[in-house]
Amino acid sequence: MTTLPQNTGKKLGLVIDLDTCVGCHACVISCKEWNTSNYGAPLSDMDAYGESPEGTFLNRVHTFEAKLADKPAQIVHFPKSCLHCEDAPCVTVCPTGASYKRVEDGIVLVNEDNCIGCGLCAWACPYGAREMDAAAGVMKKCTLCVDRIYNENIPEKDREPACVRSCPAGARHFGDFADPDSNVSLLSAARDGLELMPELGTRPVNRYLPPRLKDDITDSSSIDILAPLLDPMPETASGFLGWLDKALEKF
């Protein structure tokens, strides 16, 4: 059924720290690796070794530059994947019931056996989180690594999404937003986690922690901590050095 659940038990999702992300794309690669060899159809590449290679990815890192007038520009690496929206428009448009939002944990998934590859869900998603696989003809999207997080065959520390597990900067966090005391809820509350395109009313679960403002180098006094210590020595020395200076001048 492609109607959305009134309430989900858990609200599993990600917190992505834009202040910490270094834009290394490790999450992109580990996502591709895990999801091409596990749940559902593999994430195919087209013309992989040719002139215009492209492929299916569930997670992509954009890099933006933001600039206020008269301030230095700030670079922000911006990983983007499914936000597992509470009011997910991609689910309700699906004609076959292949797209659904799980009642137990809120993960938005595609049952590929039912997907006819019409692409309407990708049209309905404002975030570009869904990509049609060119080889399989079915819609692919982030599963929040549903085949890792509950997987008792792998060590407990690996039971989180591949992107979170692989992030070398610790910029990605996984948890339950329905629990106010979870790591993700606390992080999001402490750092005013951002919702993407709130005006569209999709109520995304994932949150982005805003980057901290850069120091302003145009006002030099605010960053010049060492300069006062480097002031020239007074012309006349005092104490032992003063005595030495005077004593030496006698000769």
């Binding site: 992509r60 933006f64 933001a66 922000v76």
Partner: peptide, 24 residues
Amino acid sequence: TATGLGFLGRVRLLEKPHSGSNYL
């Protein structure tokens, strides 16, 4: 609004996430 970065000023794309094209 798409990036939530408006508080940092005017936003522009510095680098695409991939060198080629994609489905989107």
